[in-house]
């Protein structure tokens, strides 16, 4: 005797319900409990919510919750092959890119990599102090034998952040030119930004095999591309209306206006977006070690799994150092842009 029997009896649906009752349906926890004979008296206080499971008890034709999750899974699996068929070839270059960049970073000897990074940092920031700081951090990481892992992490961030900028800036520009596109895109961006990173991984794991680099590549890009899109859109929309009007009054074409006025004036905001994108790539690359992304995250994971406190903490420190380096370098590049076009 289930709580909600009266509903179906009252509506004259008993026959319909009983046709759905198949004795060998999945056994629910409630069924098992009922079998143990512990039957409480029904009062208003313990009235169960009319959930799917509860209704199923009263009427066998109503599906159980587990049928719902099963259905979602089945429909995803049914769509999976079609999705794979489309997505696999499109995303394959990402795998190649990640693999080859990783092998280049790994194959380059440290005595070439160090000066190279120093030069890059100098040209980004034009600050000798920052170069010294970055070199000291790298030397420390290399000294405690974390150099290889750090380079792997850096390689992944390099590829993913680059792709974020390559796709994010044009999307942001398109958004800034069309209010409709902006209205349609913002909910998607909100969703990408609020979903916990773990949730991205679930459908991706089913779509691609866990050993493929593109799996974590896609996860990182989806997660990190949001700020660069948002800030490109914002930056272009914030360009002084008077300056745009002047550009129009001198007969600039849309192209001249975009590349000669809007993008240069939006550059501080775009750079701020790139900075955030890089930081978010770093955060995600650590999580992505769950799905075979190499780098410092692997060591952290080892620390957690094997309860090796020291390994976890030292590699954690390595990540912090990497984060500081990336943040400082991009910020000082941003400051230079800002200083160059102070109003």
């Amino acid at each position: 005797m289930a709580t909600y029997d009266f509903l179906f009896d009252g509506a004259g649906l008993r026959d319909w319900c009983d046709t759905g009752k198949t004795g060998d349906g999945p056994v629910s926890m409630a069924d098992l409990l009922a079998k143990t004979g512990v039957s409480e008296e029904q009062t208003a206080w313990n009235l169960p919510f009319p959930s799917l499971d509860e209704l199923n008890e009263a009427c066998g034709s109503i599906a159980q919750s587990r049928d719902l999750t099963k259905g979602v899974e089945n429909s995803f699996l049914a769509a999976k092959d079609a999705l794979r068929f489309v997505l696999d070839p499109i995303t394959q270059p990402l795998s190649w890119l990640l693999e080859s960049t990783l092998s280049v970073f790994e194959a380059t000897p440290w005595w070439i990599m160090f000066p190279l990074l120093m030069i890059v940092v100098y040209f980004a920031s034009k600050s000798v102090r920052l170069v010294i700081f970055v070199t000291a951090c790298l030397l420390f990481l290399a000294f405690v034998d974390h150099y290889d892992h750090a380079m792997q992490t850096l390689a992944i961030i390099f590829v993913c952040a680059l792709l974020c900028v390559l796709f994010g800036v044009p999307i942001g520009i398109a958004m800034s030119r069309s209010n409709r596109l902006q209205r349609m895109t913002i909910p998607v961006l909100d969703m990408l930004q609020t979903l916990p990173p773990f949730v991205y991984l679930i459908p991706l794991i089913f779509l691609f095999s866990v050993t493929e680099p593109k799996l974590y590549g896609i996860a990182i890009i989806l997660y990190a591309i949001v700020p660069v899109i948002r800030l490109t859109d914002l930056g272009i929309r914030l360009v002084d209306k008077d300056v745009i009007e002047a550009a129009d009054s001198f007969g600039m074409t849309d192209r001249q206006k975009l590349f000669g006025v809007q993008i240069p004036l939006a550059l501080p905001n775009i750079m701020a977006g790139i900075n955030q994108t890089i930081m978010m790539s770093l955060a995600m690359v650590v999580i992505a070690s769950l799905v075979s992304a190499p780098g410092l995250g692997v060591l952290v994971l080892r620390g957690i799994r094997n309860l090796e406190l020291g390994v976890g903490l030292v590699s954690g420190l390595g990540i912090v150092l990497l984060a500081i380096i990336l943040d400082r370098v991009t910020k000082s590049a941003l400051d230079r842009v800002n200083a160059a076009q102070k109003h």
């Binding site: 002084d240 008077d242 300056v243 009007e245 002047a246 009054s249 001198f250 240069p264 076009q341």
Partner: peptide, 14 residues
Amino acid sequence: VMSMVFQKFALFPH
């Protein structure tokens, strides 16, 4: 044919 001068100058700051 026409060129314009603006109240707030509207120069290109960069």
